[in-house]
Simulated assay, not measured.
Amino acid sequence: MKQIAVAIHSGRVEGLGEKAAKFVDALAEACPDAVLLVGGYWGHMVDVVDAALRRGLRVVVFLPMEREDVALPKGVIVVRTGCEFRCRSVQMVRSADAVAVLGGGVGTMIEALMAYAMGKPLFVLVGTGAYSDRLREAYPRHFDERKAVDVVYVESPEELARAVCAAGPGVAAKFG
């Protein structure tokens, strides 16, 4: 069983919902025992959670205290973190075996940076139309001189799913 944190936009970006669904479908095929970790149930996180539940994947939602009142679908495991948005992201990323960045803004990029700093295998989908697409231009392989992990950029949601499923200690580099 692999716990995969999914970082995705908390708002809406045209076409990103379809990419999220393709990622989840491919993930269910490649890792049917995967557990998805998400930071809420709004924006494109809804797309990930709903697709995962349809495919029979387990989902854990890490809610920030500002959004503990959100209605969640039946079948998700909820963690009421008791802390604000960024703090809940620490808990989510720390709990993950690998991190998949599907596209987003500053919150998504913060989660990517946290994953890097924690040495988590980190995979970033590019071509999403979201601000996180700029990560590859700014940081082609590493976010800093420590070279904590190789950041792996992929072109398709299906490739992202396969890479995340294969991730383990030292595995991220083989996809880079």
Rank of each mutant, 00 (worst) to 15 (best):
Y116K: 01
P64L: 09
G107Q: 00
A5P: 06
V78L: 01
L122A: 01
G127D: 13
D144T: 13
S10L: 06
D133A: 06
H44G: 00
G40L: 04
D50L: 11
V149Y: 00
G104T: 00
T81C: 05
F85A: 14
G82F: 04
L53N: 07
V78N: 02
E145T: 11
A100M: 09
G107K: 00
V124G: 08
A167K: 10
R141Y: 06
M114W: 10
L113K: 15
Y139W: 08
D47P: 03
V99F: 05
D144E: 12
E68Y: 01
G129I: 04
K74I: 13
M65Q: 15
V78T: 09
M109S: 15
I110Q: 15
V35M: 08
V6M: 08
L37K: 02
A5E: 04
V70T: 01
L36I: 10
A28H: 01
A163N: 02
Y139I: 03
G170Q: 05
V164T: 07
H44M: 01
L125I: 03
R94K: 15
P157I: 11
R141V: 11
F175H: 05
F175I: 03
H9K: 09
V149H: 03
M118A: 07
G43L: 01
A100F: 05
C87D: 12
S89R: 12
D69V: 02
R12A: 13
L125F: 01
P140I: 00
D69W: 10
L125T: 03
D69M: 06
R54L: 05
L72W: 02
P73R: 03
V6H: 00
H9G: 04
R134E: 10
I8P: 05
L102I: 08
V46M: 08
R146C: 13
V164Y: 07
L37P: 05
H44R: 02
A52W: 05
F23C: 00
A166W: 06
V46K: 11
M118R: 04
D144S: 11
V126E: 13
H142A: 01
G127L: 07
W42Y: 14
V152K: 01
A96F: 10
F62G: 03
E68V: 03
V154C: 03
S10I: 08
M118V: 03
R58V: 08
A5D: 11
G82A: 01
I8H: 06
V99S: 07
G104W: 02
D50H: 04
A163H: 07
L102V: 11
Y116I: 03
R162D: 07
V126K: 13
V106Y: 14
K22W: 06
P140G: 02
V124A: 10
Y139D: 07
F123Y: 14
K174D: 14
H9S: 09
A100C: 13
V151F: 02
F123S: 08
V93I: 12
S95P: 10
L16M: 07
S89T: 09
L135F: 02
V76L: 12
Y41V: 02
A26F: 04
V76H: 12
K120D: 15
G103L: 05
F85K: 15
A71M: 05
V152W: 00
M45V: 02
V24G: 01
A7M: 15
